[in-house]
């Protein structure tokens, strides 16, 4: 859905960092993709590979996408862990404590897209 603009941010950041490091090439890029973002993995990969291939340094970058599961902490019963999808026949997890069914939660992990690291040839 906003894969394009997210990837634009990623490519801008990594080319800025790689240029600062005097890199000749970005050989590998590692991204963490949280399941609670609305970002679709295949589209992120598609746009990343496409946009990187149009840069000087990213023509043969290996893109590594790690999927991060959502982890919540329940403010009512203290449960800390993953979420369940409901039987509503969709893939997005419902933000509800699997233990006590409260909706009073804190999201600990899985709601972000993190640019982890670059591997460069300098």
């Amino acid at each position: 859905m906003h894969e394009f603009s997210t990837v634009k941010n990623i490519v801008e950041k990594v080319t800025e960092v790689a240029e600062k490091e005097g890199a000749k090439e970005i050989t590998r890029l590692e991204i963490e993709l949280g399941e609670l973002t609305l970002l679709e993995e295949e589209q992120i990969r598609f746009w990343l590979e496409m946009m990187l291939s149009q840069t000087e340094l990213g023509k043969s970058t290996e893109v590594v996408l790690n999927r991060i599961s959502g982890v919540i902490q329940c403010n009512i019963c203290g449960y800390k862990g993953g979420l369940e999808t409901t039987g509503m026949d969709h893939y997005f997890p419902i933000l509800k404590c699997p233990k006590c069914e409260s909706h009073d939660l804190k999201v600990i992990e899985g709601d972000d897209c993190i640019i982890k690291s670059l591997e460069i040839e300098d």
Binding site: K13, V14, E119
Partner: peptide, 14 residues
Amino acid sequence: MKIVEIEESALKKG
């Protein structure tokens, strides 16, 4: 070959 850690959110700006 060098690894550069970034650890930055791609969603930070918004």
